[in-house]
Structure formats: C-alpha cells, structure tokens
Simulated assay, not measured.
Amino acid sequence: MSSELSFIDLFLQASLLVQLVMLLLLATSVVSWAFIFQRSKVLKGAQSEMKKFEDKFWSGVDLNRLYQELSARQSVHGMASLFCAGFKEFVRLRKSPSTPADAVMDGTYRAMRIALSREVDSLENRLPFLATAGSISPYIGLFGTVWGIMNAFIALGEVQQATLAMVAPGIAEALIATAMGLFAAIPAVIAYNRFSHQVEKLENHYGNFMEEFSSILHRQSLSQRSDTMQS
C-alpha cells in the first residue's frame, strides 16, 4: 500500500521549472491578497469620508468656513478635495472684476476635474495588478502543468513496462500548478470587479457633486454681480 503524497512532497519532486512556476503563483497570490485588504480599507474609508462630507456640506454650513476648516488639515481626500480645489479657484478668479462669469465657472470646473482625475487615480491604485494577476495566473499555471506532464511522459517512455503508479505522481505534481493558478486568479478577479464597481460609483457621486457645486457657485456669482451693478 503506497503512502499518500503531500503537497510538499509533490512540490519537492517537481522539476525546477514547475517549482519556479508554483513559487511565482504563490507570490502572486500573497501580493494579491495584500492588495485586496489594502484596497478594501481605502475604498471603505473613501465612502465613509464622502458621506460625512455630504452631510456637512448640505447642512447649510458657510462655504468659506468649510473651506478654511478643510484647508487646515494636513491632507484632504475624496469629495472634500474637489470642493477645496473648486472653491479655491472660484475665489481666485472672482477677485478679478474683469473676469466674465462664464470664465470663472470654466476655471472652477477645470480645477475640480483635475482634482477628480487625481482622486480616481488614487482609488484605482493597485487594481491593474489584480486585473493582471486574474488574467494571466491560470495561463502560468497551465504552462507549469503542460511542462510537468510532458516531463512525466518523457520519463515514462524511457521504461519498458509503464504503470499508472509510475506516471501518477508526475501528473499530480503538474496539475498542482493549474490549481495554484486558479487559486491566485479567482480572488483577484472577484476583487477587481468589485473594486472597479465601487470606484465607478464613487466617481459618479463625485461627478454629481461637481455639477451641483458648480450650480451653487454660479448662482452665487450671478447674485453678487447683480448686487454690485445695483449698488
């Protein structure tokens, strides 16, 4: 009765190339899980900050006071970053009486678009690695499997009387590469799809806020210019 081979035994008996494939897939899986936990924390934090800022913004707080409060922080992220970028540019352009209202709003909107692009880039950080790991890991594992099975059959051809017991360990150690490829790819694909959807939702919320904030600033600018002309 033959003893069962453990994963470690199959790894040690595999060829050098198959071992390298397994180690590469193991490292890919470890890095993917690290990025998954890190991105999950970042995106949850972004959603929490967005809700807190929206509650404060729509509570009727004075915009100048809100801007000063946010500017005093060491770092501002998410929707608050869009607000600071837009309000700062709005105030700067509005100081020039000769600047048309449309030019003021165009400059304000561009400043918020740049801030939005930076925020989305920050949210999408690490996601390309998850996409790459999810797409190529199965093929790397398949390559290791094909190589291992090829070596098993080559060794089998060198003996006169071949049995299943002789070829089974070689095939088993080769198939582990495919299993490891799937083990690395499946969580990465699931996480990538989930995080991409969350980033898209955040980007839509940011975009809606930009439109609403631009309308508020535009009405404020027209009101102030009207008061100036009347006086």
Rank of each mutant, 00 (worst) to 15 (best):
P187G: 15
K88T: 13
Y192W: 11
A179T: 02
F213W: 07
A111I: 01
A162P: 09
L123G: 07
W33C: 11
S29R: 01
S215A: 11
V104S: 03
I149E: 00
S15E: 12
A85N: 08
L217Q: 05
L116V: 00
T108S: 07
A184M: 08
V42M: 09
Q198L: 05
K41G: 11
P97H: 07
Q220S: 12
M1R: 07
L23G: 13
I216M: 01
R225L: 12
L17H: 09
Q47A: 14
K95I: 01
I8V: 15
T145C: 09
M112P: 09
I8E: 15
R118P: 02
A177M: 00
I140H: 02
I190N: 15
Y192S: 08
Q230A: 06
L82Q: 04
A115T: 08
E54F: 02
I140D: 01
P169K: 04
S59T: 07
V31N: 07
V189S: 09
S122E: 05
M166V: 15
L222M: 10
R94P: 02
E4K: 09
F87C: 04
S32A: 10
S223G: 07
T108A: 03
A184R: 15
Q68H: 01
M1P: 07
A184H: 14
L156A: 14
I136Q: 08
L5N: 06
P138W: 07
A80F: 04
E203N: 00
M166W: 09
L182S: 14
F11A: 01
P100K: 00
N151R: 14
D121H: 01
F129M: 10
Q230P: 03
Q38H: 14
